[in-house]
Amino acid sequence: DITEHRSLEKAKTAFVSDFSHELRTPLTTIQSAVGLLERARDRLDPLEHRALELADQELKRIRTMVEELLTLAQMDSWKYQLEVGPANLSTVVQTAIESVEAKAERFGIGIYFDDAGEHKCICDVQKLYQVFINLLDNAIKYSDPGARVDVEIDEGASSLTVRIRDTGVGIPDEDLTQLFERFYRVDKDRSRATGGSGLGLAISKQIVEMHGGSISVESEVDVGSVFEVSLPKALLSRSVSHAL
């Protein structure tokens, strides 16, 4: 029954949204407590120092998952809208790189992007920033120390293409077709260890398609992956389906 199915979907979306909102309050309280301990870092012994680092890492991981669940609920309820304006895509990409550089350095991974040109487009800067953060974060998480991530932008007559190439573990062929599905994780054991929820790529795909663009991947096991985001310079349509 279609009506019953829609009612169940609506109830599920409402539950996810309410549950995610409820989690925000205790997370904020815990974050404040961790922040207070950070101020006393110089008085902690090495074991306490490490415990504080782990608590902070796990807190950030859980907060990211909560935000992804909220985004998912908004997409399902059609409340997720683009706020577009003129932008330089090169700046959006550079800002995303700067946000993950500390993590990359911690893992011994270099990120290379030397495009200082202007690549003008009409887009939602904050949402595309989220897409590039997701892709860069994955490239870091699934690469070994000493690896590199190369980022480039190609400009066509009416479109821009951002390419993120890593030298990581790669993705098996049988997983490529499901990679952008909700909650899908290629290496479940490694995803648990690195904090993957299986939502980042699904959300990224939705954001890119809302811009009238596309996202794709080519990969080879033990060689690396190349994620490609193609975007129109002018927003072609705002009526792209929000259903993943």
Rank of each mutant, 00 (worst) to 15 (best):
I133E: 11
T161H: 07
I153C: 07
D115T: 05
E155Y: 10
G156W: 00
L136R: 11
H119V: 02
A139T: 02
D124R: 06
V149F: 00
Y112W: 11
G156Y: 04
D137M: 11
I133H: 13
Q126L: 12
I133K: 15
K103V: 03
D114V: 10
E105R: 15
I111F: 03
Y129F: 15
K120P: 11
D114Y: 08
R106A: 02
P145D: 02
K120F: 08
E152M: 11
D150M: 00
L135H: 09
G108R: 04
Y142E: 00
Y142G: 03
Y129S: 14
D114E: 15
L160T: 02
V125S: 13
A139Y: 04
E155L: 12
I153W: 05
V151K: 01
K127P: 10
A147P: 08
A116E: 14
I153K: 07
I140Y: 01
L136G: 06
E105I: 09
E152V: 09
Y142H: 15
I133G: 09
L160W: 00
A147R: 04
Y142S: 02
A116I: 13
E118I: 12
C123A: 15
Q130I: 05
S159Y: 07
F113V: 05
V149T: 06
D154R: 15
D114N: 14
L136C: 09
S159A: 12
R163V: 10
L128V: 03
I140R: 04
K103R: 13
K103L: 02
F107C: 10
G117T: 13
L160A: 04
D150F: 10
A139V: 06
G110H: 13
F132R: 13
K141F: 02
K127W: 06
R148Q: 06
D144N: 07
D114H: 11
T161E: 09
I140N: 01
P145F: 00
G146M: 00
V125R: 15
R106L: 01
D144Y: 07
D154M: 14
Y129W: 11
Q130H: 13
H119F: 07
P145E: 03
R106N: 05
K141Q: 06
G156D: 00
C121V: 11
G108P: 11
G110F: 09
E155S: 15
G156V: 04
I122Y: 12
P145C: 06
G110N: 14
G117E: 12
K141T: 00
T161G: 03
A157W: 02
S143A: 00
C123P: 01
A147K: 01
D137F: 04
H119W: 03
V131E: 05
G108W: 05
D114A: 11
S158L: 10
E105T: 12
S143Y: 03
D137I: 08
V131Y: 12
E155M: 13
V151M: 05
A104H: 06
D137Q: 14
L128A: 09
I111E: 08
R148P: 03
N138C: 01
A147T: 03
E155N: 10
K127L: 15
G110E: 15
F132I: 11
K127Q: 15
G108C: 07
N138D: 05
V125M: 12
V162F: 06
R163E: 04
A139W: 05
N134Y: 12
E118S: 13
S143E: 04
F113Y: 15
K141R: 10
K103C: 01
D144S: 08
D150P: 01
G117K: 14
